[in-house]
């Protein structure tokens, strides 16, 4: 499963994008479960968000949803954190 996270906005206004493939990873089942939950919890359009808050786009195998701080589901939060930290 190909998972890509794009983070825009924030106080600095710097966009960050990172992606990873769950295939072959030891945590693949967990990541894929997170990704499915993150998609289900997301919105089809970018939410308004809050001033200086991060906004996120989560793309999983071609399907994209959006979410924004501070209103993330637990799955979105963990997935975003993992992909931005470990993805390339």
């Amino acid at each position: 499963m190909r998972i890509t996270v794009t983070r825009t906005g924030g106080f600095a206004g710097i966009t960050r994008r990172a992606g990873l493939d769950s295939t072959g990873r030891a945590d693949a089942p967990h990541l894929e479960e997170l990704a499915r939950a993150a998609l289900a919890d997301g919105a089809p359009d970018r939410p308004a968000g809050v001033p200086d808050g991060f906004q996120y786009g989560i793309e999983v195998d071609g399907a994209t949803v959006y979410c924004a701080d501070p209103r993330l589901s637990a799955a979105q939060r963990e997935l975003i954190r993992t992909v931005l930290r470990e993805g390339a």
Partner: peptide, 26 residues
Amino acid sequence: HYGQDYGNAFWDGERMVFGDGDGEVF
């Protein structure tokens, strides 16, 4: 102390919220 290694601050409509920074950049 909002979030872990959280490199941002924002206004949520009612309060200011500050992260500790990621330590790498912020």
